[in-house]
Computed example of a mutant assay.
Amino acid sequence: MMWWGSDTNGWRRRMTAEWVPTSHGEPISVREFDALPVDTSHRYEIENGLLLVNARPAPKHSRALSRTVEQLNAQLPEGWEAFAEVEAEFSGRSPRRVPDIVVIPVEAAEQTRIRSDQIALAIEVATSGQSAVRDYIVKSREYAANNIACYWVIDLLDVDGDEVGLTIYTLEEPGKYTYGPRLSGTVVVSEPFPLKLDLNAIVGQRSVRR
């Protein structure tokens, strides 16, 4: 893995192809995956045709998800809603994914799983080097291949004391993302909707109002 600075907002994260992680599970079909018993203690996905099993998020990760969802839902236009950890149906070698956060039409929440073409925004939260590699490289390729227009990676890696960071990927042409510099602080965007995200507010202990 390589790190170097390349813009005035700090550093931009780059990773070499050698660091692409591989799944360690057994090959599994979509039919077999969908027939698995419910297990709320782990998160199951199909990655590159293999069963990927991860532990449930740690409190730091869960806090970032819930606070990000809260900020988004306070601003999204009518008919759209942000959800955490919803199973999604993709095309390709990873047909079952569970993005950390998705913004989808409210009616899609009634489905057993959402489709990639219903996702206006997908967000992953990286809290470790391994998850960062998967989010920045593997999932960015998959999400682009499924034509998800907007993809964000929020990182909580705390590299050299840096603040929480956000990298925004935009689908400039079918199947291919471009991405900008790592952002920090309060970020204002126009796509997929006009939104403002206070990155520093998604970490740290909850303040108690008296």
Rank of each mutant, 00 (worst) to 15 (best):
V69Q: 12
N9M: 10
D155T: 14
S6C: 07
M1F: 13
S207V: 15
D158Q: 13
Q71E: 08
A132N: 04
V102Q: 01
T22H: 14
E173P: 06
V102W: 00
S91I: 04
G161A: 09
H61P: 08
V133H: 10
R14C: 02
D39Q: 05
V69L: 07
E173A: 14
S66W: 11
E173Q: 15
R67Q: 14
A108F: 00
E110M: 03
I202W: 06
V102R: 00
R67E: 13
A126N: 09
E70Y: 15
D39K: 09
A58H: 11
A74R: 13
Q130P: 00
E142H: 08
L65I: 13
N200K: 12
L50N: 14
S128E: 01
L76G: 00
I28S: 03
Q205C: 05
E18T: 12
A149N: 00
E107M: 05
D117V: 00
I119W: 02
N200Y: 03
P27E: 04
E26R: 10
V164T: 15
S6M: 11
V203Q: 06
S91G: 08
E89M: 01
D39L: 11
L195A: 09
Y136D: 04
L156C: 07
N54Q: 07
V189K: 14
L183D: 06
V138Q: 15
Y177V: 06
A88Y: 01
P77Q: 02
T8Y: 04
A144D: 02
G49D: 12
A35S: 15
W152M: 06
Q118D: 10
A126E: 13
